[in-house]
Design a protein around this nucleic acid. Structure first.
Lengths: 153, 153
DNA sequence: GGAAAAGGTTGCATTAAGAAACCAAATCAA
DNA sequence: TTGATTTGGTTTCTTAATGCAACCTTTTCC
């Protein structure tokens, strides 16, 4: 019984989860955003088993989220760096962080601030084209013909 | 060897992933945002095994993301509805959707539009207090003493 | 040159996931 | 009212994933 694939589910969210939806991937990405580049530093920073880390890093590389760069003089010192695609997950990571802080309190040792001002960030929100904040009740899911689907709260 | 717990990792992202970080939870939540409330409808809509759906729903209920409401006359007709905490994951779901669409193309049968205007939504972004858009390079991770940590891209 | 570090791989035990069968209560059709 | 079907599960079995520890090779440090 191989694990269910999500990329043929006709859903972009499922497709995203297929790439970064397991327990560790987003934490590896968050660690990379924090500055970590070396295998051992990921291992120590996350407390992840080496074989799992191997698997996650190579999967992230395969999916174009990270790259493996050879930085050794003679061959076997590597760095794992975020690609543009990986860095673009910043929104997701921050949204998850803020959600957790709103509902579970701040469990984090560290804080995220604007580099130039030192001030905390604004809350990540969903907006319409005019910049108005939208909740799930303010949107419609429409099919390819523009027909709206039922929606709930 | 029980799966690693993330809620004692000193990280809000890890704490969030501990609640909704497995393969199915966010899809169940997205399905609920789409209007699904009944057990069978989740099952048909997602193609998930019943025992896994049972487990995920009850875990989401335990974590306060959904509630189980008895809607039957005599006892065993249930609806699973999002709580405020669950609805608040809208930002995360939309951010994931949009990321996937930006990098993998739109794999989705349906589209998300502003209910009042019918227009597509704006891209979810991270902003500072002044409303300026920030990337991961524009932020600093600081510890509890305000000391900045190294950061990369 | 010897020791340690980096980046893995392998083997084993435990847990989770998926499919299918089964089941009891409630509802629906006749 | 009876019988079938739906709903919301639970159980069993097989396969896959996770975690830990040991090991291994190349490279760097002293």
């Amino acid at each position: 019984m191989t694990r269910k694939r999500f990329d043929d589910l006709g859903c972009s969210v499922a497709c995203a989860l297929n790439e970064v939806g397991d327990w560790w991937s987003l934490l590896v990405i968050k660690q990379a955003m924090l500055g970590t580049r070396r295998f051992v530093d990921f291992q120590n920073g996350l407390g992840i088993a080496k074989n799992i880390l191997c698997d996650r890093l190579s999967r992230l590389v395969d999916n174009g989220v990270m790259t493996r760069v050879n930085v050794g003089e003679h061959g076997t010192r590597y760095e794992y760096r975020l690609t543009d695609k990986g860095r673009d997950l910043f929104t997701v990571v921050v949204a998850l962080r803020q959600w957790s802080e709103r509902w579970n309190g701040n469990k984090d040792d560290m804080q995220l601030v604007d580099r130039s001002s030192g001030e905390p960030l604004a809350q990540v929100v969903v907006q319409n084209a005019d910049g108005e904040v939208l909740t799930v009740r303010d949107v419609l899911f429409v099919d390819e013909n523009g027909q709206p689907l039922e929606q709930a709260g």
